[in-house]
């Protein structure tokens, strides 16, 4: 996601309409204009931003939540995303975050993965422990909410193995992620347990480079890019909706693909 696309035009709709009302004195014309103005107001909405909590925004958000449910229903926990061959990998694989590549932060000294919430064994996890677990690889398509897509090769630990190993409550609703670049997001448990959901430690056969999320990234070919957190500092399991960096700004939460 490029966070740069937020230069929106704001028109104060109430002011514009108030101005227009001063002009229309005749009651019949006013009645007519009142009706056509609601159309005009609709037309003016184009190019405007909807985060100011008006009723249109409320309706759209409600439909977005409904769409989350439809997607959860459409999601088939056994259906696999297509896998690709080595030659189909997109090179160079695009960098993407809510900041530029120059601002990538290095992993903190003595990094360990924190665990919290509905997890039996909350002891911090080291990278060495993760490397010692069974590893798998996938070459899958990363689809961005912006519309572009790119094929990459990721390797690491099956997330369902990891969750079982640490004693996560697999009946909980959500798995949440806090990252040391201040990004955060959360996913549904069925997707967390999907066979292609991978806690990745490598990219293209090498240790995950900083720009792709060192020390670890959660890779889900069944979800849009912004659901795949990089630089994970903490993983938690919860029943209360944890939200997410983009989700809290209006992007849909389920974001399946």
């Amino acid at each position: 996601m490029a966070g740069s696309d937020k230069k929106f035009v704001r028109i104060d709709k109430k002011l514009v309409i108030k101005d227009a009302q001063k002009v229309i004195a005749d009651p019949y014309r006013r009645l007519f204009m009142k009706k056509s103005m609601s159309l005009g107001a609709l037309a003016m909405l184009s190019g405007c931003d909807f985060t100011d909590g008006n009723s249109v925004d409320t309706v759209l958000k409600a439909i977005s939540r409904f769409n989350d449910k439809v997607q959860a229903w459409l999601f088939d926990p056994k259906r696999l995303a297509p896998e690709y061959t080595e030659t189909q990998i997109t090179r160079p694989f695009p960098f993407n975050a809510y900041y530029s590549e120059a601002e990538v932060r290095p992993a903190p000294q003595g990094y360990k993965l924190k665990l919290s919430g509905m997890i039996a064994n909350k002891r911090d996890v080291t990278l060495a422990e993760l490397h010692a677990m069974p590893q798998t690889e996938q070459i899958t398509r990363h689809i961005c909410v912006e519309g572009w897509s790119a094929v990459g090769r990721w390797g690491g630990v099956k997330f369902s193995d990891f969750l079982s190993r640490v004693g996560a409550d697999l009946t909980a609703k959500y798995v949440g992620f806090r990252c040391f670049d201040d990004y955060y997001t959360s996913i549904d448990m069925p997707t967390a347990l999907h066979p292609q959901t991978l806690l990745t430690l490598t990219f293209d056969g090498k240790t995950l480079p900083p720009k792709y999320g060192y020390p670890m990234k959660l890779r889900m070919p069944t979800k849009l890019g912004y659901k795949n957190p990089k630089y994970i500092a903490e993983i938690f399991v919860a029943n209360d909706y944890p939200g997410g960096y983009w989700e809290d700004q209006g992007y849909e939460w389920f974001a399946g693909s």
Binding site: G47, D49, F50, G250
Partner: peptide, 8 residues
């Protein structure tokens, strides 16, 4: 207004 709004 922006991508998220358009998607909604």
């Amino acid at each position: 207004g922006w991508l998220a709004g358009a998607l909604q």
